[in-house]
Amino acid sequence: MAKETRSFAVIGLGAFGSTVASELARFGNHVIGVDRDEKRVSQMASTLPATVILDTTDEGALREAGIDRYDVVLVAIGRDIEASILTTMNMRLLGIDTIWVKASNRTHHRILSKLGADRVILPEQEMGRHISQMLNNPVVQDYMTLSNGFSVVNVVLPERIKGKQLCDLGIGDRHDLRLLGMMRGTEHVPCSDRDMDLRPEDKLILLGKRADLRRFGDAL
């Protein structure tokens, strides 16, 4: 397989793995879906560019299927922790550049980290934190956590903002935040003019620490 574009192998086609694989394929990537369950593989055969029924604890079978030629592997095996660990070890033996692995619990997480996975995911906990942020502050439509306690949030301005200007929000003054951009409908609006009028439903993209973002949301 040519290496001009990134290629992805998703191992484990349960609810999590099949969703990730489908979205990666929708973005135009070359994706192979792998599972030892024939039913799961057949369900994804028409959605993904390639699928294969495979026991991924078998290093030889992985090489024969050409998994070693993929740039990124997501090990999304669910309840079978032993298979997840052995598969992750095999990915290292194959020399895969980037390995992401789904963990079932914190102990599993620690083991996978020791094995050298580039990123270990606890989907339920990560989604739980994501949902709690949005429930805690209704103006927060979406957010992404970065390193060192910083997050990027998408804040929808409420109706009561009508008649106010950008400078009235106190971004960078009262609130230790950085405004990265603003969307008005589907249009990107430059934010260089602090005297610009705001409209309800404008979406601000803000960078800052969680406590500062929470205070800003409360002030709105």
Rank of each mutant, 00 (worst) to 15 (best):
S46E: 12
E64N: 01
N136S: 14
R110M: 02
V152Y: 09
F150N: 08
I171K: 07
G78C: 01
R129F: 13
R26G: 13
G17N: 06
G170K: 15
P138M: 04
V72C: 07
A219Q: 09
V41E: 09
L62A: 09
C167S: 15
V73L: 09
V139Q: 11
V120C: 14
K162T: 05
V72I: 13
M182A: 07
V139E: 05
P49D: 07
A2C: 08
A117I: 00
V41H: 07
A65M: 03
A21F: 12
S151D: 14
I131Y: 15
A83S: 05
E124F: 00
V153N: 04
L54V: 03
D212R: 07
M1N: 06
K39I: 15
G128N: 03
R92Y: 12
L115A: 03
D193K: 04
A76N: 00
I205N: 13
R40C: 11
S18K: 02
H30F: 09
N29K: 04
S46G: 08
N105F: 04
V73C: 11
E201I: 15
F216W: 03
H108T: 06
L13D: 02
F16Q: 01
M44T: 07
S104V: 09
A219C: 14
M89T: 02
Q141A: 06
G78K: 00
D173R: 14
D55F: 01
G208M: 10
L206T: 15
E187G: 03
G181E: 06
R69S: 11
D202S: 12
L166E: 00
A50H: 10
A61R: 02
N136P: 01
D168A: 09
D212T: 12
T186W: 08
N154A: 13
E124N: 01
S42V: 15
G78F: 04
V155Q: 09
S151G: 07
N154Q: 11
E126T: 14
G95M: 09
K102L: 03
F150L: 10
G12N: 00
K102Q: 05
Y70F: 11
A9E: 00
N136K: 03
Q125S: 04
L62S: 03
R36K: 12
S84P: 04
V156M: 10
